[in-house]
Write a protein that binds this DNA or RNA. Structure first.
Lengths: 185, 185
DNA sequence: TGGTTGTTTCAGAATAAATTGAAACAAGGC
DNA sequence: GCCTTGTTTCAATTTATTCTGAAACAACCA
């Protein structure tokens, strides 16, 4: 059975490396390392795990595990399961990479882009309106408004785009993306 | 001139709010607040500014200003300018929102996605290969490989997509995005 | 060459974010 | 009710990140 043991060891090592590289990526995107690692672990092992297993594997505290799992549930990229005769809660990751990606985009839009957009509208409406006179200051106010409008229009396009792909039936994005990359240049 | 003063005051206030909301957003995306604020300031004022002006307006130290400006230059979303008879360096933001966005995507891909992709390939190549036998463990190895492949394929699609839009002539994205949002559902 | 102005660097300080661990809380079973 | 098992919360701590300020550096000028 030495071969089998060796295989298993290498599998575990590959999983650990996957988890670690995922965790590294996290910081750059404003996600906590542990949260990313927990998700990576559930994804790459592909089986439901309970809190204790996750704690042990990632070497983290119970509190941290609980909060990270909660966050992943809120993002909608992992779900609860149960095992017969076991009172513990188990968690498993969405195994469809594209649907996972859609969930992430959906949440980030909702949490970060939408509030920003609302603020930008407020700022626009509170910005001083240029009057008819043609002084330099009026020109500047006009330019200010133009810059605000362009940013607003950009973000609105992004929002619509994300809704278009992310929300309902949903799997349009995968097809579109693949088509778009199919023909080089 | 009370009206003019009032207009100017309101303009400054609008700019400050823009800068602040931009800065808030930053944290969620793994960017330092100051860097985002400096960029927002240059964008919304629309005119070249030197280090001292930026320091004063954002209330930050010279060191911080210098490093943030440098980072923005590295990202390619601001550029250096000079004024006749003034030895100071001036900086101005790219005023085209879409080209700005392209620069950001290009850099993030290069810095974060490409290295991750390289690591994923390494992990795949170091993962144990299943043999012909049909045991549970072999099935698991197969499933592991499938998950890795799916993630790899996803990220490769994303990379190609980004190259397609971001790199050369470049302005395709704007058109495509607008078209895609044009027809609801 | 020495003086002046402007820019960069980086060790240490300040700040923000993530993590722990123990207590509080829930949900059963007896 | 009152144990037992599992989960959540949160104040205190640890860790990571950002920022400061002064010194080093660079470029120009007289």
């Amino acid at each position: 059975m030495a071969t089998r043991d060796n295989q298993h060891e290498k599998l575990t090592e590959a999983q650990d490396r996957f988890v670690a590289s995922w965790g590294q990526m996290a910081g750059a995107w404003g996600i906590s390392r542990t949260m990313a690692e927990a998700h990576a672990l559930l994804y790459i092992t592909g089986r439901p795990m309970n809190t204790d297993e996750i704690m042990d594997r990632l070497q983290i505290s119970r509190g941290n595990a609980s909060m990270s799992i909660r966050a992943l549930l809120d993002w909608g990229i992992i779900s609860r399961t149960h095992k017969r005769g076991d009172r513990k809660e188990y968690f498993e990751a969405d195994q469809d990479v594209w649907s996972m990606f859609r969930s992430i985009v959906r949440e980030r839009m909702k949490r970060e882009v939408e509030p920003l957009l609302a603020t930008l509208f407020e700022i626009r409406d509170a910005s001083p309106a240029p009057d008819e006179a043609a002084g330099d200051q009026q020109k500047e106010l006009l330019a200010h408004q133009k810059r605000l409008e362009e940013m607003l229009s950009f973000m609105q396009t992004m929002e619509k785009l994300s809704h278009r792909f992310v929300s309902p039936s949903g799997s349009g994005l995968e097809l579109a993306a693949k088509l778009l990359t199919k023909f080089d240049r």
